[in-house]
């Protein structure tokens, strides 16, 4: 049973790793680099929690 579980673990690892690589490729070819790297630190606070003392 344990050896079977070990093979299942390898299988799941390969499938999920392949899915992530596929999704990575899909996203990188669908969206521009400017959009993907557009996150900015601090803008959340600036927008939704106006800094007042």
């Amino acid at each position: 049973m344990w050896m079977g579980l070990s093979y299942v673990c390898w299988g799941i690892s390969v499938v999920l790793a392949a899915w992530m690589l596929y999704d990575w490729f899909k996203v990188d070819t669908t969206y521009s680099e400017a959009v993907l790297t557009s996150s900015r630190e601090g803008e959340l606070e600036a927008v939704s929690e106006k800094h007042r003392i």
Partner: peptide, 10 residues
């Protein structure tokens, strides 16, 4: 090894 791989990848 298989359990390590599954843990990290999942």
């Amino acid at each position: 090894n298989s359990f390590i791989a599954a843990t990290i990848v999942v």
